[in-house]
């Protein structure tokens, strides 16, 4: 069932104006969409990061739904605690309402410092969705490298320099890691494909048990792109197969989108300031290597999804 924007107009605003995320930030867009994708009452946990600090600067909060921030690495454990409280109180007849639980964490709080708590929460089977808004680095604190930073990008802790082309390693396949917990639902989505994203959000929230969403969340500031290019850059991520859209629904791998003609990775690289050093002649082999890795991964993914 497709979402119709005209109908979404009537949905309550769970993340209000007056938050202090940067102009053009992807995070509030995806947060708003996800919370519009369901009619269930939601409790939200948030890892330390851009979305958390910018939406709750005391004494202000942009959240119109119950919300908790605990620390950086423990959003999954925190929401697990909230969900456990709900489960216990419901069982004892102290709460009647059906409630759903989501956690937002950036890639730093998810791929890196929070992965243990995430893994534990997924394994224990809490009825929750963990959403990673992946902006590919520690952007809140000035673009330090994370496990999600792509190869070749320059960050402030693994910068490009005379003898370095920036990050040497590929980013982790966190969606596959989440899926390896054999949870009911895991998926990867992007802002360029909103119907796909909202359908995935609805499925993830409404499925009984743990779910995981990995959403590419452009950071205009530190990807060094214009403020208005948030959606366009997401499109390029998908069209170059840098960020494939797929889901693992009860163990079944499904490729949601295949570009008619895969665009060269150069299209994604050349428009972002964080990659500008790669355009130097000497770094041509790096781009070739990145292209090869993306094609190989997509090939693997296609095979995985055709089983």
């Amino acid at each position: 069932m497709a979402f119709i924007l005209k109908e979404l107009l009537d949905k309550p605003e769970k993340l209000t104006s007056g938050h202090r995320l940067c102009p053009g930030c992807g995070a509030p867009i995806l947060a708003k969409w996800i919370m519009m994708a369901t009619d269930f009452p939601l409790v939200v946990a948030n890892a330390t990061g851009c979305l958390e600090v910018s939406t709750t600067i005391y004494p202000y909060t942009a959240w119109n739904t119950p919300w908790i921030h605990n620390a950086f690495e423990n959003a999954a454990a925190t929401i697990a605690g909230v969900e456990s409280a709900y489960k216990s109180l419901s069982r004892q007849g102290k709460i009647k309402k059906k409630v759903k639980f989501i956690a937002f964490g950036g890639d730093g709080g998810t791929y890196d410092i929070g992965i243990q708590a995430l893994s534990g929460a997924l394994e224990r089977g809490h009825d929750m969705v963990y959403i990673c808004y992946d902006n590919e680095g520690y952007m809140n604190t000035g673009a330090q490298r994370s496990g999600a930073t792509p190869k070749g990008a320059s960050t402030t802790t693994e910068p490009a320099g005379k003898v370095s082309y920036g990050k040497k390693m590929r980013h982790k396949d966190l969606t596959a890691i989440a899926a390896a917990h054999h949870i009911p639902y895991a998926a990867q989505a992007a802002l360029s494909n909103w119907q796909d994203l909202m359908k995935k959000a609805k499925k993830a929230i409404e499925v009984d048990g743990p779910a995981f969403l990995n959403i590419l969340s452009p950071c205009v500031r530190f990807w060094r792109i214009p403020d208005d290019q948030t959606i366009e850059i997401s499109k390029l991520a998908v069209e170059t197969n840098f960020w494939p859209l797929f889901e693992i629904d009860n163990g079944k791998w499904i490729l949601n989108y295949k570009p008619r003609e895969r665009k060269p990775i150069m299209d994604w690289i050349k428009v972002q300031g964080r990659y500008k050093h790669l355009l130097q002649e000497k770094n041509k082999p790096v781009i070739e290597e990145i292209q090869k890795e993306i094609d190989e991964y997509f090939h693997w993914l296609e095979k995985r999804c055709s089983d």
């Binding site: 925190t78 929401i79 605690g81 456990s84």
Partner: peptide
């Protein structure tokens, strides 16, 4: 961490 979430939820 889970205790903080749970206690904040009123349990």
């Amino acid at each position: 961490s889970a205790c903080v979430g749970s206690a904040a939820a009123g349990a």
